[in-house]
Every structure is written in structure tokens, then in C-alpha cells.
Design a binder for these strands. Structure first.
Lengths: 120, 120
DNA sequence: TTGACATATTCCGATATCGGTATATAATGT
DNA sequence: ACATTATATACCGATATCGGAATATGTCAA
């Protein structure tokens, strides 16, 4: 059978370093494609294509200003990631099996006692 | 030129839905490969391969117990994602240009004034 | 309209990724 | 040693992804 269609989502979009870099820049200030190209050293088509991916998952939006396009980040679209990460972390902290960690810690370092703090 | 080597990192590992599902299960309790296969409806090789990716980026660890392997999640390896997400969010909140949002809001809804709260 | 500039899209080649099937490896029990 | 169970790996085919080069589209100015 074939590969599962990725139906590009936020997680996927953020999986690419160049796209994260674009988001980093846009988080500080909205920018035109040309500015991103200069700032990040991307080729122009490369930038346009990554911006398209980001646009399609809702992470950025753009408006036309003169003959160029100004992109800005759309924070709320990060929600699925934030939610997943938060819930995962909560679940980890909640179900953490201290015995396992105790054993693992004993196995590696016999000198210091295992930390009993909340895990992150 | 060729495609940039992905040097699989945490962001990439988490980009796949099946791997996120594996992490979801492991966040609640450590499990053997077989348990993951049953629980998630994956094929056995599929599970092993995804677990390998997760292992290589440090998101899971395993130990041998009898003839099977028990995998557990390793929370701290999520740090890069948490850090990135947090800093991005902070940057967004810090540099948010209220005028833009005001205009955008005015354009879509002329009835309610723009929210002046911190963005998420 | 024509030209200049900015951006988007198309086409292409190289490669990465995913899933399936078959097989190898490891641990246990008889 | 042999069989059984559990997991990992190798191999393969289909497809997705990325980057580059060339081209199309859109906007403005003269």
C-alpha cells in the first residue's frame, strides 16, 4: 500500500528548519518575501514555496502592499501544537512511574539519590 | 542541488501522526512493541521503525524485559520543541503590531472592537 | 501599452519517507 | 539443540518533499 497522505498539518509545516526560521523572523515583524529572502539567504522561489505551506496550514497570512506581499505570523494556528505538547507533558507528569526512574538512576549513578521533582 | 539532509530532529519525529500517537500512549504508561501494535493498529515492523526514529532523537528509551522490549517516553527530549514554541509565542506577544490587527478586525467585523488582550 | 520589479508557479531531478513483505536476531522454554 | 515468541532489519515500490531553473502572474510607473 502507498504512503499515507500527509495532509500537511501544523506539525509537518514546523518540521522543516527553513520554515521555522521564517516563523522566527515573522514573529518579530511582518516582512515581505524579499526581506525574508535577504534575511534568511533563501532563493526567492524557495521562500515563496515555504510561505505557501505555512499559509495553507494557517500559520501565516499575507496582504498585498504595492507590488509586494507582506506576510505576518498567525499565532492562534499554533494552538494544536501547544495543546498537544501541554497535554503530553501533563500526561507524563501524571503517570510518571517513580520506581522505574529510581531503578534507572540507581543503575547509572550510585552516588546521588534520584530527584523527586516534577518531570519535564 | 539535492535536498537538505533532514538530520532527523525532534520536530521531524513529531511531524508524523503515528509517532505522535505512540508518544501519547507512552506518556500514560510504558509499553512493549506488541502492546503498541495492538493499541494503535500498526503493523509490527511499522511500530519498530517508528520507535527507532523516536529513539534516535531521544524521545523514547527502552529496556529489555524477558523476550520483549519495554519502551518509555523520555520527557526532557521535548525541550527543544517547548523552548522554540515558548520563545516564538513570547516574540509574537512582544512584537505584536496592534494597528494591523485593528485594521484587519475592522475589515471583517465592524460591530465589535478589537480585543486588546495578549495574543496566543 | 511597455517596462521594471516582486512574487508565484511549473517543471524537473535527487532523495527522503512511509508502508508492506520477508527475513534476521534475540530471549525463553522444552 | 530446537521451537516459539518478540522485535529488529533489509529490501522494495510508491509517493512526498526539497531545491534549482525557467517562466508566469501581478502591480506599479512612465
Amino acid at each position: 500500500m502507498a504512503r499515507q497522505s500527509t495532509t500537511s498539518d501544523v506539525f509537518n509545516a514546523v518540521g522543516d528548519l527553513h520554515r521555522r526560521e521564517i516563523l522566527d523572523v515573522l514573529a518579530a515583524r511582518e516582512s515581505t518575501v524579499g526581506e525574508l529572502v535577504d534575511r534568511l539567504g533563501l532563493s526567492q522561489p524557495q521562500a515563496s514555496k515555504h510561505l505557501r505551506v505555512l499559509r495553507e496550514v494557517g500559520l501565516v497570512r499575507c496582504r498585498t502592499k504595492g507590488s509586494s506581499r507582506v506576510y505576518r505570523i498567525h499565532g492562534p494556528s499554533l494552538a494544536p501544537m501547544r495543546t498537544w505538547l501541554t497535554q503530553l507533558t501533563e500526561s507524563i507528569n501524571e503517570h510518571y512511574d517513580r520506581l522505574d526512574d529510581y531503578l534507572a538512576t540507581m543503575q547509572s549513578t550510585t552516588t546521588s539519590p534520584p530527584e523527586s521533582e516534577i518531570r519535564t
